[in-house]
C-alpha cells in the first residue's frame, strides 16, 4: 500500500489531492518539516533529500511532489488521471515540468510573501517581480485553454492537477486572474473538485490538532 509522508499544509497536499482523485487506499503520515521530522535518519532512509513529501509503495521510494503525482496517475489512475495514449502521456509530463520550472518559482515567491510574512513586512518589490514572471506562463495556459476545457483535452487529468496545485498559490494569495479568463475558469473548476475539498479537510484537521 502507498504511504505518503508529509503534512497536508506542505507540498504533500498536492499528493493527497492526487491520491483522493485516484480513490485508492493509502496511509498518510503527517511528517512535520518545521519540527525537524524530515531530518531524522529513519526519514532520510526513505528520502535522502530530507524534504516532504515522500512516497513509498512496495519497493518504490521517491520524492518531488509533482513526480509523485505522475507516479500515482500512471499506476493508479489509468484512463482517468493518466490518459491512455502516448500523446496524452507526454503532454502530462510536459505540463508537469512546466509547473515545476515556469509557474512554481514566481508562485512560490508570492506565497512566501503572503503566508510567511506579516503585511507590513511584505516586499512589494518581490511581489512585483513575481507578478511579472507569472505573466508568460499564464499567457501560455490561456492560449492552451482557448480551444479546450482542460490542458490536454476535454477531461481533467494529472496535467491539470499538477499545474493547478501550483497555480493554487496564486489563488490563495489573491492574484488577479481577470486578464486570463480561461485560466480563471479552469482553476476554479479544478479547485472545486471534491478530492481537493477532502485534502483541505485533512489540512484543516491537522492544523487544528
Amino acid at each position: 500500500m502507498i504511504t505518503l509522508l508529509g503534512k497536508a499544509a506542505s507540498r504533500a497536499g498536492r499528493c493527497l489531492w492526487a491520491l483522493e482523485e485516484a480513490g485508492i487506499e493509502y496511509e498518510h503520515k503527517p511528517v512535520d518539516y518545521a519540527k525537524g521530522e524530515a531530518k531524522t535518519d529513519s526519514f532520510r532512509a526513505i528520502n535522502p533529500n530530507a524534504k516532504i513529501p515522500a512516497l513509498t509503495d512496495g519497493n518504490v521510494a521517491m520524492f518531488e511532489s509533482l513526480a509523485i503525482n505522475l507516479y500515482i496517475a500512471q499506476n493508479y489512475g489509468k484512463g482517468s488521471l493518466w490518459p491512455d495514449d502516448a500523446a496524452g502521456n507526454s503532454a502530462c509530463q510536459q505540463w508537469t515540468l512546466f509547473a515545476a520550472t515556469e509557474l512554481e518559482p514566481p508562485s512560490a515567491a508570492r506565497l512566501v510573501e503572503f503566508i510567511f510574512k506579516t503585511e507590513e513586512n511584505r516586499s512589494q518589490e518581490a511581489l512585483d517581480a513575481a507578478a511579472e514572471k507569472t505573466k508568460a506562463p499564464l499567457d501560455a495556459l490561456e492560449a492552451t485553454l482557448r480551444d479546450r476545457d482542460y490542458l490536454t483535452g476535454d477531461y481533467f487529468n494529472v496535467a491539470d492537477l499538477n499545474v493547478a496545485c501550483v497555480a493554487e498559490y496564486l489563488v490563495r494569495t489573491k492574484f488577479a486572474l481577470s486578464s486570463w479568463p480561461k485560466v480563471n475558469d479552469w482553476i476554479t473548476r479544478c479547485l472545486a473538485r471534491p478530492a481537493f475539498a477532502v485534502m483541505l479537510d485533512i489540512k484543516a484537521t491537522e492544523m487544528a490538532a
Partner: peptide, 9 residues
C-alpha cells in the same frame, strides 16, 4: 521522473 522533476525544479 523524480530526478527529471528535481533537475527542473
Amino acid at each position: 521522473i523524480q530526478w527529471s522533476v528535481w533537475a527542473a525544479g
